[in-house]
Amino acid sequence: MTNEMKLEFSAVSENEAFARVSVGAFVAQMDPTMDELTEIKTVVSEAVTNAIIHGYEENPNGKITILAKLEEESIELTIVDTGRGIEDIEQAKEPLFTTKPELERSGMGFTIMENFMDEVEITSKVGAGTTVYLKKRLATKKSICY
């Protein structure tokens, strides 16, 4: 069976912890390993932080949406902002690339997402916003009984 949830919240840094803990709690029903749970929380934190810092440039009126979908053996996450968008996605994905070095950004967000998830798809339009789709297959899940 498929189980879905949707969260919408303001683009403020207090919500970074809220977002990863909420997604972690939703995903817990799939009985992931501790490592898988940590990886999922980390990528949620990365995508939400990006929306806050880069998408909305810390404007608290911005709204972030997370859709989470649990399938038999995998987890799909979609993180959406309607902020400023990304000009060059290939460049943005390069390790250590950041447009905000003055904020001590490490430029590792997308690299971490690609390392921790099986699929990463970024769609973005300048002036319209960014959508990050992430998919992870759980290694331990052969079949689930509800």
């Binding site: 940590t38 934190s45 932080t49 001590e104 950004r105 490490s106 590792m108 971490i112």
Partner: peptide, 13 residues
Amino acid sequence: TFMDSSGIGVILG
């Protein structure tokens, strides 16, 4: 108990 890439940035700084 938790760290993401923002931690990398602040430690490097």
